[in-house]
Computed example of a mutant assay.
Amino acid sequence: MTRPARTVARLETSLTLARAASDRRSYSVSARLDAVLDDDHRVVLLDDRGWSTAGPVGTGERLDLAELEETARVVVGPDEPAHGRTHEEEARLHWSALADVLAGAGVASTGAELARLPHGVVLDERLLARVRR
């Protein structure tokens, strides 16, 4: 019996506090973008993204959840256009490259389909502990 084709249900970016400096203001976050399939399996699409900043991490100073989520979505792309390309072209290339990663894992999808999916952001416990409540 053939197995039904798996489809991508949503995208999810996982954030991990990679480093909190001793000055308690600087920090680094790593970001991994996964495609979450309809059977709850995951395919890693990007695992080389993240950012560093000098910002509120110390006692009494908290990070803003909405800012973290927005930054996470920007960091996993699409990137700013390369010289000579439009934002639309860069976005199309980005989403097509992610669809190619999925194809390599045996999951059929198009870049346009991926671009329309819900995109959640999940924080690790160390980062979540620093979020403003």
Rank of each mutant, 00 (worst) to 15 (best):
M1C: 09
M1Q: 09
T2F: 06
P4Q: 14
T7A: 13
T7F: 06
R10P: 02
T13Q: 02
L15W: 02
T16G: 11
R19M: 13
A21Y: 13
S22K: 12
D23Q: 07
R24Q: 11
S28F: 04
V29E: 03
S30Q: 07
A31I: 09
L33I: 04
A35T: 03
D38E: 04
D38N: 05
D39L: 06
D39M: 06
D40C: 10
D40E: 14
R42M: 02
R42S: 02
R42G: 04
R42L: 02
L46C: 10
D48R: 08
R49F: 11
R49D: 06
R49L: 06
S52K: 14
P56C: 15
V57H: 15
G58S: 11
G58V: 08
R62L: 13
L65G: 15
A66N: 08
E69L: 07
E70Y: 14
A72E: 15
R73Y: 06
R73S: 06
R73I: 03
V75S: 04
G77D: 10
G77E: 09
P78T: 01
P78Y: 00
P78W: 00
P81C: 01
H83T: 15
T86R: 10
T86M: 07
H87Y: 13
H87R: 08
E88D: 07
R92N: 08
L98R: 15
A99L: 00
A99M: 00
L102T: 03
G104W: 04
V107A: 05
A108Q: 06
A108D: 02
S109V: 00
A112C: 05
E113P: 00
H119Q: 06
G120S: 09
G120K: 07
V121F: 05
V122C: 13
L123N: 01
L123H: 00
E125L: 08
R126S: 14
R126P: 13
L127N: 01
A129Q: 14
V131F: 00
R132M: 03
R133P: 15
